[in-house]
Structures are given as C-alpha cells and as structure tokens.
C-alpha cells in the first residue's frame, strides 16, 4: 500500500478559556479524537456546522494552531512531532485557501507580488523563472496576464478567490486545505470556482481537504466525506452513499436541511428539523454528543459513547441505532424517517 498524502490519528485540539475561579483551568475541547486519511490526489470533504471543529482540524493539520495531542503525518513526514521552526519547510508541501478573499490577500501587494511571494520563500527560482510561473498560474486560474500589475481591491470576490487559489497552487503542494472556499461568493460565481478547483486538481495532482458546511458542494467535489458534530466525526464514507443513505441521524438532518430549488419537490419531501440548541463545547453531553437534539435518542445514548458501525455501501457511523432500538444494523436512517412522520 502506498503512503497516504495525509494521515491524522486521534487528533485533540483544546482551547484554554480561562479558569473556573478555583484555580482550575477550563478547556474548550474543539476537536475530540479525530482520525482521517487522504490518499494522494484525492479530495476528502469535511462537513459540519459552526462549532463542529471542522475548520480547527484544517488549521491543526497545517499547524497554524497547535494540537493538544495526536499525530498528523504528511506523506510520511511527521507534522506534529517536529519543532515549530521546521514547520515552514513543510508548508511548501501543504497550503491553504481561506473563506474570505477580502481579508486573505494583502491589499498593499500587487497580484504579481502576491503570487511571487510563495516562490521566493519556498524555491530558489530565478526572477525570470518566477515571472514565467506567475504567468502560467494566472492562465490556469482564468485570469488575464495583464492583471498581474493590479491590486486586490480592483477585483471582485470571485476573482480574488482565483488569486488566492493561484497563490496556494503555485508551488504545487501535495495537500491544499480549502476552508469554505466558495461560501463568501455570489451564487453565480460559486460554481466557476468549484469547476476551477476540479480542473486545477486534475493538472496538479494535489490532494484536497475541503472544509464546508454545504453537503451539496462537498458531494460535488469529493468522492469521500466525513461529517462532524461537536468536535467528533459522526459519520464518514462515500459521498453518494452518505448523501442518499445516511447512517447517522445528524447527517440525515444536515442533508434534509439543504433547501432544494424546486417547490413541488420540497412540498412532497418530509424534513428532519432539529429542535433545541447546539450544546456548549465546554460541557458536552455524556454518551453520544448528538443525543440532546436527536429525534431517536434512547436511554443508552446518554450512558455510553456510540460504537463506530460499518454502514452498507461503505464507511462508518457512530450511532447506537445500529445495535439498539430499531437496530438499523448498518442500514440507512431514511427508513426511520419514512416510518415516522416528523414535523
């Protein structure tokens, strides 16, 4: 078996949020024992809502924040075990594209300077070679070569995001973390960027970790998906299977919450609407963290953390429903939704 591009084992990230007043520190456990793996050239989608810890994982993988424990390996190289000073050389191999292209590009640098900077830091190319690379990447992201002398404020959101992608891709990294790359963009330009990302990945062979809240976007972009809730992965598997036959009630709720642009179809489909509020990460629920909002919660859900169960069609889900109560035994949560009309 070949070495995976990215391997994350039992990652924990905690934020220190001050003391309780009795000298004890309080920790916000943002990522709680997450493991995942991405093959070279593959895209893994990481979905979840705000507070799920999905962005924190992206940042911890690049060591833009320090993990509390666990291990991150990039193509066999240990990212977590090396001193901070060594991280920079690894950044040549992994890059990030942020959500907001308005704040992620330095407004006082021209597009040319923005794109040359990673080459200056990570390569020893001559000035001429760097300029050739800049021209090449501008073309690849669909921007006119003449734009190189302009500044970010002269561009629309979609164009800025093209620059941000060009900046990440120009050193041909093995892994790119894309944190909500289209959610700040206008609807008509979102799909331009999605198609661009796919085309550029075909060319470069980079692996993507795509962090997004929109399951439709993730399914379109990545063959595999991991669903996060309150710092844990509750389900993972082939995107098509998770989307059509979710094995975890939270995945089912997330999918059914995406409004489909067809009024006739929406009236016909029952929806799984979650009640209650997202619990605090300072004091997460015992047992299964989703139980306080789960329409199928049972006694065991409060008592024991759910086991990871293989799901028909591939992947795993962490849910008691597969062994207790209705005993889905690896089947789809959809069978429960049709059996029981939910408001």
């Amino acid at each position: 078996m070949t070495e995976p591009c990215l391997q994350v084992d039992d990652l924990h990230v905690k934020y220190d949020v001050g003391s309780t007043g009795f000298g004890r520190r309080r920790w916000l456990h943002a990522v709680n024992g997450v493991s995942l793996r991405i093959e070279p050239g593959e895209t893994l989608g990481l979905v979840g809502e705000s507070g799920s810890g999905k962005s924190t994982i992206g940042l911890a993988v690049l060591r833009l924040i320090e993990p509390f424990s666990g291990r991150v390996r990039l193509g066999g190289a240990d990212v977590t075990g090396i001193p901070r000073s060594g991280v920079r050389s690894l950044r040549r191999r992994m890059q990030m594209v942020f959500q907001d292209p308005y704040s992620s590009l330095n407004p006082s640098m021209t597009i040319e300077q923005l794109l040359q900077e990673p080459l200056q830091i990570h390569t020893d190319l001559s000035r001429g070679d760097r300029q050739a690379k800049v021209a090449q990447i501008l073309e690849a992201v669909g921007l006119h070569a003449g734009y190189a002398v302009r500044y970010p404020h002269e561009f629309s959101g979609g164009q800025r995001q093209r620059v941000a992608i060009a900046r990440a891709m120009i050193i041909r990294p093995e892994l790119v973390v894309l944190d909500e790359p289209v959610s700040a963009l206008d609807v008509s330009t979102q799909s331009q960027i999605l198609n661009l990302l796919k085309a550029i990945q075909d060319q470069s062979g980079s692996a993507f970790l795509l962090v997004a809240h929109d399951l439709a976007v993730v399914r379109l972009m990545s063959p595999r998906v991991a669903v996060m809730y309150l710092g844990e992965i509750v389900e993972e598997g082939p995107s098509g299977r998770v989307y059509d036959n979710p094995g975890h009630p939270y995945s089912a709720a997330l999918i059914s919450a995406i409004p489909f642009p067809d009024p006739v179809r929406q009236r016909a489909s029952g929806r799984l609407i979650l009640r209650g509020e997202l619990p605090s990460l300072l004091d997460p629920p015992s047992g299964c963290r989703f139980r306080t909002r789960c329409p199928f919660a049972m006694d065991i859900c409060a008592a024991e953390a759910p086991p990871r169960v293989p799901i028909e069609g591939g992947g795993v889900a962490a849910c008691h429903l597969h062994a207790h109560g209705p005993r889905l035994a690896g089947g789809s949560v959809r069978s429960l939704l049709t059996a029981r009309v939910l408001s």
């Binding site: 206008d186 609807v187 979102q190 799909s191 331009q192 198609n195 796919k198 399914r219 379109l220 642009p261």
Partner: peptide
C-alpha cells in the same frame, strides 16, 4: 435559468458539473 443551473444541488441531481454563469456581476 443560469442561477438554477449554477446550483450544486441541481448539478448533482443531473449528475453533471454545475454550469456557472460566466463573468462577474
């Protein structure tokens, strides 16, 4: 029509890539 064709959900339904509206707003 273009807004609809550009939506990921619609593209998924058809098993195609989304069709973006070219250019900028």
């Amino acid at each position: 029509n273009g807004l609809l064709e550009a939506m990921p959900q619609v593209a998924l339904d058809r098993g195609q890539a989304p069709v973006p509206i070219p250019g900028v707003v």
